[in-house]
Nucleic acid binder design. Structure first.
Lengths: 338, 338
DNA sequence: CACGTCGATGTAATCGATTCCAAGCCCTCA
DNA sequence: TGAGGGCTTGGAATCGATTACATCGACGTG
């Protein structure tokens, strides 16, 4: 592969001039510029980004460490992150942590070794050592979706409190009184926050959230299935199950179906994180939707601000309730039927 | 960030010795090794991968350019690719082409600029210029899923012919006679191959595949919806629609539902590419499943073989039919009901 | 006419590693 | 005792870029 030296030789100038042309530095004569460009064309020369990065100490690359690529929510997040990054002239390297702290650490380490300019993280747990180190060590960093308290790192997230309140109102209006939740890992902020929001919203109606109705999941479908089976085995099963993410909702749907029961007739179901597929499930699932694309774009902007020396800002978007049929007929339909 | 020089100074040795310890070169005294390791520990030193790459001319990074990250099939492919690559000591950078040749070219270009060691591609179209150039220029390269004929590049793919034949047999057994297909872009191999396999399988039953029943899609949900509406508007609509990918099947489902019709009662539906969600749709969708994980792993192995100087091999896996309920009751159930 | 200025260019240092080559040291064997 | 050989080790070149600094003409001005 041709190097800058080859181009310089071909054009009959020094490497400095070639470099100047390539970085359109002002003081280059038209003649030299023309000859360099012709040489570049003739040799099919492309600058070596590795060498450039070594010299300039910047890679124009962002690292994105997410908890689970197979989760459509994160896939969409990754996609919007890549788009915005590309628009700003950055590439992104995605690391999939699969909800495993050790993998998260592995990715943070290799990304740092590659000297990425900044790191976008949706932490799997309370924070793996390498990540905390990086955060404290001054690596430009931004948290998306989930975060770790006590660190001076901007957070871009969606607040689901209002939407959860809307959801509970919706469910209450439908006549449901026994509510259960499939929680995410307590170590993640989204894991604990969603339970709290749910509990608080229930409290407004004087409804409890008993321990027996609080199942511990891990954001994966299988755990949703397992927890739901536990609920169904109870002497008095809940009337509603609220899954703290989309995959666990899917598991819950499986569990209900496996018993020959039906949603929402035998058990109502709602989920946090809306995804295109929820429209097509049987029944379509009522969910709380985050503005995922906005989240990804805002996160990249914050990170790039930080990298380029501008003060980055934390941003919180609002999530909203999307009512479908998995919790029962909507009140309106209900009323018209009565 | 500490460099190898700092470590050398701290350990009281030369940078050459530090490098030797780090790459466990045999001729280093135990004493020196110990001092270097201690210095590394004390300074929290991590080698600069950028500098190393410049010197060794290898990045231990693979590029993966796929057509659409949001498609669960490709997400799963990407995941298995990353896993296998990690196991072999490589990282992977994913480029999402969004079925756009220009974006595909953009990613190929930046990946090449970064001097990745090899490229895994599922080409969007007949081949964008940069990609062809790279293929011919000797960049280690492997095609996954889709490929471009006439290039000396190994191909890792799944053959759906037998499965399509099984599908047609299944449909024929169910009594269907009017078959339609939503094809993918003709420029992609999977786009044209699947139509051909379908047509050939139908021919075995003396059944035609009229032009009116051959819709042109682009592997995206929206096109599936549009084409299906066209089918439904026909004086004599088909009895079965076979979508050449999962997203278009989803669009078809939408179209049918939007008219207040039902699958499979009013129109049977089958898809190429199985995904977890098809179990949960209403009704569950009959699909042809590829061994996606195998594909991804085999592709990485082939690419790494090529990179490390071993002869790479093309591999073809078999896809298989997964019968669910979107084409009607299965013959067995049928018989028992009769 | 001499001097300062400015634009265009080249030389060389530098980034952080790897690795070839030479040198130093110790040991063994003739 | 001296030559040769095996370990260790350090010096320095190198990878492909960027960029500070020096140089060299040409030009304008007093």
């Amino acid at each position: 592969m041709a190097s800058i030296k080859d181009v310089a030789a071909e054009a009959g100038v020094s490497v400095a001039t070639v470099s100047r042309v390539l970085n359109d530095h002002p003081s280059v004569s038209d003649d030299a510029r023309k000859r360099v460009l012709a040489a570049v064309e003739a040799l099919g020369y492309r600058p070596n980004a590795v060498a450039r990065s070594l010299r300039t100490d910047q890679t124009r690359t962002l690292g994105l460490v997410i908890s689970d690529v197979m989760n459509p929510y994160f896939t969409e997040l990754a996609r919007s992150v890549e788009e915005e990054a590309r628009a700003l002239g950055y590439s992104v390297i995605i690391g999939n942590a699969d909800e495993r702290p050790d993998l998260q650490d592995h990715h943070v380490t290799t990304l740092l070794d590659r000297r990425i300019d900044g790191l976008l993280v949706s932490p799997t747990d309370g924070g793996s050592p390498r990540m905390l180190e990086a955060a404290r060590g001054g690596t430009p960093m931004v948290f998306v979706d989930r975060w770790i308290p006590g660190l001076d790192v901007p957070v871009i997230r969606a607040d689901g409190q209002a939407a959860v309140r809307d959801l509970v109102a919706h469910l209450h209006g439908l006549g449901h009184r026994r509510f259960a939740i499939i929680a995410g890992p307590a170590a993640t902020t989204t894991g604990s926050e969603r339970v709290e929001a749910f509990r608080a919203a229930l409290a407004e109606y004087g409804l409890p959230l008993p321990d027996a109705y609080t199942g511990q999941g891990d954001f994966q479908a299988e755990s949703g299935r397992r927890v739901t089976e536990g609920f169904l085995d109870l002497p008095e099963p809940p009337e509603v199950v609220f899954a703290a993410d989309n995959l666990m909702a899917l598991g819950a749907l499986d569990a209900v179906r496996a018993r020959g029961l039906r949603v929402p007739h035998d058990l109502a179901l709602a989920a946090f994180d809306d995804i295109p597929w929820f429209v097509h499930t049987d029944p379509p699932v009522t969910a709380i939707a985050q503005p995922t694309g906005e989240l990804g774009r805002a996160a990249v902007r914050a990170l790039v601000d930080r990298i380029e020396g501008r003060p980055p800002q934390s941003v919180t978007f609002a999530a909203r309730l999307v009512v479908r049929r998995s919790c029962g007929e909507s009140p309106v339909t209900n009323r018209s039927q009565t």
